[in-house]
């Protein structure tokens, strides 16, 4: 049981936050909002986006069918999509079956508190047309948000 990385994507396909742990034994290792992760973020978003469209194509009945997790032989991707089009993504050990509650908590108690309720934080991270459609580069740099997230996730890293 370990988590490897955590990502937030906004509705413009931009990665607005990323945190990757490189050592499962050390919860302070790794990078936050790293430039090197830009390509990975795009691939990850592409995968999630494609699978979500498949999921919705195959849905039955009136309820919307949402994707919960994607698993490979090595790791598992947990996804949580909010009504405003935000994606919370967590990569974990493939054995771990569900982090839905964790992602919901991050959204409701950390993101909403420190980003949405924060008047100094931008509402939309893409400031103009050019930064939409995956071209954005702005990240959540709010110290309180990062600290709070770190506090919440670090016990899970090497679990």
């Amino acid at each position: 049981m370990a988590i490897y990385s955590f990502w937030i994507f906004d509705k413009h396909c931009n990665c607005i936050f990323d945190r990757e742990w490189t050592l499962t034994t050390n919860s302070t290792s790794g990078t936050t909002n790293s430039k090197q992760n830009q390509e990975t973020a795009k691939l990850l978003y592409g995968m999630i986006y494609s699978l979500r469209s498949i999921t919705q194509k195959l849905s039955r009945g009136l309820n919307k069918n949402e994707m919960r997790s994607i698993s490979t032989g090595k790791y598992r991707v947990h996804t949580y999509c909010t009504a405003s089009g935000l994606w919370f993504v967590l990569l974990s050990d493939f054995k771990q079956q569900s982090y839905s509650q964790v992602l919901e908590y991050i959204y409701s108690s950390i993101y909403v508190t420190y980003v949405a309720n924060n008047l100094f934080s931008p509402y939309d991270f893409a400031e103009n047309e050019d930064e939409m459609r995956g071209q954005g580069f702005r990240k959540i740099t709010n110290r309180r948000f990062i600290d709070s997230l770190e506090n919440f996730l670090s016990p899970l890293v090497g679990q």
Partner: peptide, 26 residues
């Protein structure tokens, strides 16, 4: 689409896994 995603998924192996070299039992 699935075929493409399948290939992408293998590119996304987390760094922690690449570094730790843990043997997974398949």
């Amino acid at each position: 689409t699935l075929h493409g995603v399948f290939a992408i998924a293998s590119q996304l192996t987390p760094k922690a896994l690449q570094l730790s070299q843990t043997q997974i039992d398949y």
